[in-house]
């Protein structure tokens, strides 16, 4: 069915009768059934009042959800299995009527955020906390705005098309052994922490600024000339960088997911040690770097990693013995 037709046929609102609403409707019918044969005029008054409650409930709940503008802000990276908050900004454009008791959340998700009151022509920020059990890239398309106001008899829901994406990183808290590339000899000397003065290696050149770069590395003259931030790049000790390699060929089973988590944990451990690290998969290669931003790049790439039987074999960026191959067994070996 074409999308436009599907949207046209889709009801603009959904109305769910709650348990107490069902009791109320049943009571209304009973009152009506009692009023008609008995001719008790006062029962007709009560019947009218109950119908009036239902009508007012329907109208008012519609006013609560109508025209409310929603803006969604997702965190840059959520971690699988950990609580994550999505921020919603709700704006009430109405001139006089406030909105009461709205809850908002992603369609189909149990995580809801509640807003007690949005004054006329005001904006309120609220957050829904939920847990994403698996890593991956989730396409967010619909936000559901709902209310049971005013009486709690019915629940009115309005879907708002709001395209978005939520990247859920794999866990990076697995205990993994101190990695040594296969066949590598233990290094002499200590690994130098990133950014320490005098320990950076030789000057390599200029490059564009990336988020997370040390502000002290900004080359101001070139930045002024170009109009874009530019930083000095230094030679890293190539032998110090940790290359994490991950094969994607195979079924995306639990073992495969564990290997992804191992890769993430290796990266996190490298960050803690101050060691530059990079990631190589058949689909993507993240050049070695250091710092939290580098970890984010690696986790992003791991979030998007897709196991499949026909995935190409990984060609390591460095000789294979110098890669740290992320495997599920490494987690149990820790």
């Amino acid at each position: 069915m074409p999308g436009y037709l599907r949207r046209w046929l889709k009801p603009p609102r959904r109305l769910r009768v709650k348990r107490i609403g069902g009791v109320f409707i049943g009571g209304t019918l009973l009152i009506g059934l009692a009023a008609i044969p008995t001719g008790n005029n006062l029962l007709f008054l009560l019947l009218g009042a109950m119908l009036g409650f239902i009508a007012v409930s329907g109208w008012l709940s519609e006013q609560m959800v109508r025209n409310v503008a929603i803006l969604r802000r997702v965190p840059h990276g959520a971690t699988a299995g950990q609580p994550t908050r999505i921020t919603y900004e709700l704006a009430n454009p109405k001139r006089r009527l406030p909105c009461f008791a709205l809850d908002v959340g992603e369609a189909g998700s149990p995580a809801r955020a509640f807003v007690a009151n949005i004054q006329p022509r005001s904006t309120v920020i609220t957050r829904a906390e939920g847990t994403w059990p698996h890593r991956g890239v989730y396409q967010l398309d619909t936000v559901t705005l709902a209310t049971s106001f005013p009486f709690g008899l019915f629940r009115k829901e309005r879907d708002v098309e709001l395209a978005g994406e939520m990247i859920v990183w794999p866990r990076a808290d697995r205990r993994v052994p101190d990695p040594r590339p296969a066949g590598a000899r233990p290094r002499q000397g200590t690994l130098t922490p990133f950014g320490a003065a005098g320990t950076r290696g030789e000057y390599r050149g200029l490059r564009d600024y990336r988020s997370g770069d040390d502000p002290r590395d900004v080359h101001w003259r070139s930045t002024a000339r170009r109009g874009n931030p530019v930083v000095r790049e230094y030679e890293r000790d190539a032998a110090e960088a940790l290359w994490i390699c991950l094969e994607l060929r195979g079924p995306g089973d639990e073992q495969a997911e564990t290997s992804v988590e191992v890769a993430a944990s290796l990266a996190a451990a490298a960050l803690r040690r101050g060691q530059p690290f990079g990631l190589a998969t058949p689909d993507v290669r993240v050049a070695p770097g250091a710092g939290p931003v580098q970890l984010e790049r690696v986790l992003d790439a791991l979030a998007r990693a897709r196991f499949r039987p026909d995935a190409p074999r990984l060609i390591p960026p460095v000789p294979a013995p110098e890669c740290v191959w992320a495997r599920a067994e490494m987690a149990s070996a820790a």
Partner: peptide, 8 residues
């Protein structure tokens, strides 16, 4: 609501 009662 009262008006609706009256109408009914």
């Amino acid at each position: 609501t009262v008006l609706m009662s009256a109408v009914v």
